[in-house]
Design a protein around this nucleic acid. Structure first.
Lengths: 238, 238
DNA sequence: GTCTATAACTGGATAGAC
DNA sequence: GTCTATCCAGTTATAGAC
C-alpha cells in the first residue's frame, strides 16, 4: 500500500516507541508466513492457526491485524502486485522509449517478462512463493480470471499496445490469444512445480530461469508471427 | 479402471438384479459430483458433505464407496486420465503411421492436442470440469508436478519422441522446455477461466476452442523452430 | 446397500483479561 | 498490542440399525 522509500528511518530514539501502522514487524511476519503457506497449499489448504504458528505469533494476532482470513489473503496478493506492476510498466515504457518505431515482439515480451524473472532469481524466497501463488490463481476458474484481471490488467493492456505497434498486421483477436498462450507458459515456469525435472529425468531444472529467459521470448514471439502469417497464407500442413 | 467396451449389456432380464461392482449409478453420480466440485474449489475447498449433497446421496455413502476423501479425489483424477491417454496415444500413433519420414511439429502437436479439444467441445460438462481440475493440479507446487508426471508421462514422452523425429536438430533441452511452454498454454486455455473474456472486453471467449485449435499448434510449432534456430544463429534482436 | 446417529476433532472468529 | 479462554459451526469418519 505504502511506497517503498523510507527504509530504516529510526533516528528519533526518544520519540514514541515505533508505532506507525505500517512498520511493525508482526504485520510483515504474518504476511510472509501466509504467503509461504498459501503458495504451498492454496487458500483452503491453510488455517489461520498454521499461519500464526509459522509467523511465531498468537492466532488472535492474525485477526487483529488483518481481520478475516480472506482479507489476509488479499493483502498477500496485493503486496507484491503493486511492486511488480510498477516495475513492468517502467520496463515497457523504457523499451518503447528506446526503440520507438522499430519495436519487435521479442523486445516487448522481454521487457514484460524480465522484471518477473529478475525478482524470482534475486528477490528471495518470498518472491518465489508469490509467483507460485499467482500461478495457482491464474488457473483457478471464475474467481481466478477475475482476480488476475483486477490486479494485472493495466500492465497487460500496455504490453498488448506495444505488440500491436510492433505487429500492425496482427488482429486484436490474435494478440489476445497470443497473450493467453504466453501467460500460460510463463506462469507455469514461474510456479516451478518440479514437473520438468521429472519429465526430463533431471536434464532440465524448474529453477533454471536463465534457460527460460533465453527461450520464452523467442518462442512466443515466433508464435505471434506465425499466427499472424497464418491468416494471410493459410497453410495446409497437417 | 475397467475397459470401456461393454456398454449396455442388459440382455438377461431374469438373472440377478444388477449388482456388478462397477455398474451401480451411485459410484458414478458421486464421482461426477466430486469432479464438478473439486474443479471449482480445489481439494481443500470441498467437503464430503457437499459432494454427497450434490450427488443426492447420503454422506456415509461417499465413504462406503471410496473410503477417504483423498481416494475419492484420486479416482476422479484417474477416471478420465485413462481414457484421455489412450485417445492421445492412438492419435499420435496414427499421425506417425500416416506421416512417417515427413512429420512436422505442427502435425505432432495437433495430434497431441486434438483429443483434448474434442473432449472439451463435445464430451459434456464432466470433461470441462475435468480439464479445469487438471489445469489446477498442473500449477500446484511439488504435489502437482509429481501427479502430472505419474498420470500423463507416457503420452508426453511419446509426443517428445515424435517432435525429436520431426526436428532432428533440436536438443532435448529445447524439446522439454518447448513442451513446458506448450502445456502451460494449453492447460490455461482448457481451464476456461474467463480471463481472456475480461481482458479482451468480450472480443475473445474462453470457451471458443475452435479459435484455439487453429492457433495453438501453429504458435507452439513456430516457437519450437525458433528456439532451435536460435542456437545456430543467435540473434541480436532486442 | 443405505441411512441414523454420533464420536472425535478442527476450523474461524472474538470477548475480555493483562 | 498481545495472549488466554472459549464459542460454536462444521469437519471426517465410522459403528450399528434397518
Amino acid at each position: 500500500m505504502v511506497a517503498s522509500g523510507k527504509t530504516p528511518a529510526k533516528p528519533s530514539p526518544r520519540g514514541r516507541p515505533p508505532k506507525r501502522a505500517d512498520q511493525p514487524d508482526l504485520r510483515v511476519r504474518i504476511l510472509d508466513a501466509a504467503e509461504d503457506l498459501f503458495a504451498r497449499h492454496g487458500f483452503y489448504g491453510v488455517t489461520t492457526r498454521q499461519v500464526a504458528r509459522e509467523a511465531g505469533v498468537d492466532v488472535a494476532l492474525t485477526h487483529y491485524y488483518f481481520g478475516a482470513k480472506r482479507s489476509l489473503f488479499d493483502e498477500v496478493f496485493l503486496r507484491r502486485a503493486e511492486i511488480l506492476n510498477q516495475e513492468r510498466l517502467e520496463s515497457l515504457d523504457a523499451y518503447e522509449a528506446a526503440h520507438a518505431g522499430r519495436m519487435t515482439p521479442e523486445g516487448a515480451i522481454t521487457a514484460f517478462v524480465n522484471p518477473m524473472i529478475e525478482r524470482s532469481l534475486s528477490g528471495g524466497a518470498g518472491w518465489k512463493s508469490y509467483f507460485s501463488l499467482v500461478a495457482q490463481v491464474n488457473n483457478t476458474p471464475h474467481w481466478g480470471g477475475e482476480t488476475m484481471t483486477r490486479f494485472f490488467d493495466p500492465v497487460v493492456q500496455r504490453l498488448i499496445e506495444l505488440l500491436r505497434k510492433a505487429m500492425p498486421e496482427a488482429t486484436d483477436t490474435d494478440l489476445y490469444w497470443g497473450y493467453q498462450f504466453l501467460t500460460g507458459a510463463m506462469m507455469l515456469v514461474l510456479a516451478e512445480t518440479g514437473r520438468i525435472d521429472l519429465l526430463s529425468n533431471g536434464l532440465c531444472r524448474s529453477g533454471d530461469l536463465d534457460a527460460i529467459r533465453t527461450r520464452l521470448a523467442a518462442y512466443c514471439a515466433a508464435g505471434f508471427r506465425q499466427m499472424v502469417a497464418g491468416h494471410s497464407a493459410p497453410s495446409s500442413i497437417n
